[in-house]
Design a protein around this nucleic acid. Structure first.
Lengths: 235, 235
DNA sequence: CTGACTTTGTGCATCGGTTCACAAAAGGAC
DNA sequence: GTCCTTTTGTGAACCGATGCACAAAGTCAG
């Protein structure tokens, strides 16, 4: 027995593809709202800001959901991508650290929109504990393990100061959490099997600055004739 | 005349390398604070969370700044990376959209820390205009072009609602800005030569959810024997 | 000055991801 | 039913990034 399956799928979607699926999903939702029933790979690619061949290859990893000569059924594709991403189930997330950023995240609508539910806000500062933010009561960090267990939290968002992040990470990992979204500017060390994604505002700015500098260098004389070092290195 | 230069450099640092330089810089700053004078590629790689061969290759794109048998001079390397990233100059940035996120960004210390200076906060809501946040007066979005010109703003951070983002982007581009950090969940379309970096909180969560789902699937039966589709597709 | 030791810088094989270009599949006209 | 048009799904070439493994270059002891 050969079990051709539908070409690919059966296991392992490339990481680069996974990172783009949410993008397609957002574009598709916009199209569904505007009442579109089907969409071609070309149109969807433009809406998502990618190359159409890449889009088709990405979708082919999920299965063969298009109709040649027609395109993709918008609603069906939304369902398939949502299912693949795990958004058809309900994810309880906890936000640790209720400073400016934590507050912003708690109020950010995009989280709740699909599949995600903020189940807890935690902070170490007694000044903040007890505040009501986005309809939730801020709880003390001492409750971390209990809250994770009782409310079935499976994803933790770290918005603590840098010095506290590793310590909190150790505790949430010990409590059984294996997915962490880290906003603190530190490299967390966690055991194998724990997924960490890092969002670092300052790094993004530095990358922009690099390119901006290159652009302005090019205007004013060009880098080829700019000095290389304050003093010579090659003798 | 051959002009060997110091091997690489002269032009074009790989994008992947640029994205890691800020990481090295942060690790090096920590080491400088702890008084370390030199560091080996191995130690620095561990601190930055990367492979040491990759670190050495990354640094080799900037020039040959290490000493064999010894390692890298911490202060000197900090200076070289900072210069390469353009952090030795002062960047004026403007934040557009002073909601929860905009406020968090304005108060985020990591921006100011090296080279970046928040030069303006702008919003369309008259309720918010005039507020004082992080020592700055919130100005009306009508002032956008004037503020960019007068204060030499070269990087704009978009923290507006999704619907307003494209419109604001068009205006800042028209005003001559060529670097944008976008937090709004939309695909911006801008002319060639304008750099956009996107930070999307909801997408990061969706990627985590995907991996989390895979992990829990594996516990409960394994994906190989999980059903593929509600109905069969291959006949 | 010599020889043992350390650590960089890089050539090379490899890998994952992107893009092109086209055959295969579907729909519609007549 | 046949032909023509559209659009998918994918083979294959290409491109950039990664990581191994080692020669080259330096330090340091004696």
């Amino acid at each position: 027995m050969i079990r051709r399956m539908s070409q690919a799928r059966e296991r392992g979607i490339p990481e680069a593809t996974v990172a783009r699926l949410p993008l397609y999903l957002r574009a598709l939702n916009g199209m569904a709202e505007r009442g579109l029933a089907t969409v071609s790979s070309e149109d969807l690619a433009v809406a998502a800001g990618v190359n159409s061949a890449k889009l088709r290859k990405d979708l082919s990893h999920l299965g063969s959901y298009g109709t040649r000569g027609v395109g993709y059924d918008v609603e069906y594709l939304i369902y398939q991508i949502s299912r693949e991403l795990g958004l058809t189930q309900d994810w309880a997330i906890a936000i640790v650290g209720v400073g400016n950023l934590g507050r912003a995240l708690a109020n950010y609508g995009g989280f709740v929109s699909r599949g995600f539910r903020i189940a807890a806000l935690l902070d170490a500062d007694p000044e903040v504990v007890g505040d009501h933010i986005a309809g939730l009561n801020v709880e003390h960090i001492d409750e971390l393990e209990a809250v994770i267990r009782r409310r079935g939290v499976s994803i933790v968002v770290l918005a603590t100061p840098a010095v506290a992040a590793q310590q909190v990470a150790d505790r949430v990992v010990a409590a059984g959490v294996t997915s962490i979204l880290n906003f603190a500017p530190v490299v967390l060390s966690v055991p194998d099997g724990v997924d960490i994604r890092k969002v670092d505002l300052s790094i993004e700015l530095q990358i922009l600055a690099f390119h901006e500098q290159r652009k302005t260098d090019r205007m004013t004389g060009g880098p080829a004739m700019a000095e290389e070092w304050p003093e010579a290195v090659d003798l």
